[in-house]
């Protein structure tokens, strides 16, 4: 009933193009930060903000693939940890090692994603459990690899991606490399999801796997690819975080839930079928903007937790409400 209703109304009334509300929320938050702290408007202010947000934005861009396919990827946080710990063990303070360690880490990420995807689509284990098991396993591996206490540092060549700001860039003066990585990965993943047949298949699988299967979609392959993309994005986020934050065995802790939160704030629908990459990345920026704002307001971390919880619930409740009113 509501579907017919909707089309009739649509025909009658001129409609503004539907803009995802996450952009308005992000704009409002950034305005609030700017009012609170005028330094934010200087290039160093917003560039540092973007640099800090880049790992989560990349992670959210990968996570949204799995969410659209109808699953969850809880293993990304531990994969970040494993990337950072593994890189520090392998580079062993040798600046030249960076150039073979990074491809190796990406290959490792691809294997992790492949295993996740195969366990979910061939063994038919619910992704919540499959990636949870992967998370426990990878955390154990990170500890095992480093013997519990990671030693060594990442060489400067490795930290280049997460830490360095390019100076004397026209217009903006400084430009973090992390931001370039974020834009590159974001563009790539946006094009893959919204401009290729694969993106269409992904949405179809997430919306109704049975129907997609009967229509001839290679469901397993589409799903596995989604998990591989998510894992690769986690490795990239890990490389940035390693440069930005240094080596420890809990660098990635909590990132899996933040990535899901970011995707959901960006309007991705849990259990599949709806979601976009740019909105998920905007969700990540929104989450970071909230943290920054709370920080400027001098609120301690516990309050941040409470606020993050409330926002998470509110974002999903509002999205559900909107969807219901739109009759979709």
């Amino acid at each position: 009933m509501s579907a017919a209703d909707g089309t009739a109304r649509e025909a009658r009334r001129f409609r503004l193009p539907a803009i995802n509300p996450v952009w308005f929320i992000l704009a409002a938050l950034i305005a609030a930060i700017a009012i609170e702290n005028a330094n934010f408007l200087a290039p160093i202010g917003y560039m540092n903000f973007l640099k800090r947000a880049a790992p989560l934005a990349i992670l959210a861009a990968g996570q949204v693939y799995v969410i659209v396919s109808g699953g969850f990827d809880l293993s990304v946080g531990s994969l970040i940890t494993l990337t950072v710990v593994g890189s520090s063990m392998l580079t062993n303070n040798d600046p030249a090692a960076t150039y073979w360690v990074i491809p190796l880490m990406l290959a490792m990420g691809a294997v992790v994603g492949l295993v996740n995807g195969l366990v979910v689509s061939v063994l038919r284990v619910p992704s919540l459990i499959a990636t949870l098991g992967m998370m426990i396993t990878l955390n154990g591996l990170a500890f095992l690899w480093s013997g519990g206490a990671p030693r060594g540092y990442l060489p400067e060549t490795f930290r280049f991606f997460g830490r360095v700001n390019l100076l004397d860039v026209p217009l903006v003066n400084i430009l973090p490399v992390a931001l370039l990585v974020m834009i590159g990965v974001g563009t790539l993943l946006t094009l893959l999801m919204h401009r290729t047949a694969y993106g269409k298949l992904l949405h179809a699988v997430g919306d109704n796997p049975r129907a997609a299967f009967l229509a001839g979609v290679p469901v397993a392959r589409v799903r596995v690819t989604a998990f591989v993309i998510s894992s690769l994005s986690a490795v990239v986020a890990g490389i940035l975080l390693g440069g930005f934050a240094g080596v420890s065995t809990d660098v990635g802790a909590g990132y899996e839930l933040q990535a899901i939160t970011a995707a959901v704030i960006g309007g991705a629908q849990l259990l599949g079928g709806r979601g976009t990459v740019p909105a998920a990345m905007a969700g990540a920026l929104t989450l970071n903007a909230i943290f920054t704002l709370l920080n400027f307001l001098g609120l301690p971390k516990p309050v941040r937790d409470v606020v993050q919880g409330l926002i998470l619930i509110a974002a999903v409740a509002l999205a559900t409400l909107r969807r219901r009113r739109a009759g979709r």
Binding site: V119, L123, V125, I129, A130, L132, G133, M134, M135, I136, T137, L138, N139, G140, L141, F143, L144
Partner: peptide, 10 residues
């Protein structure tokens, strides 16, 4: 032990 545990759950 932790590694094996993850594998066994799955």
């Amino acid at each position: 032990k932790q590694v094996l545990r993850g594998v066994i759950i799955v």
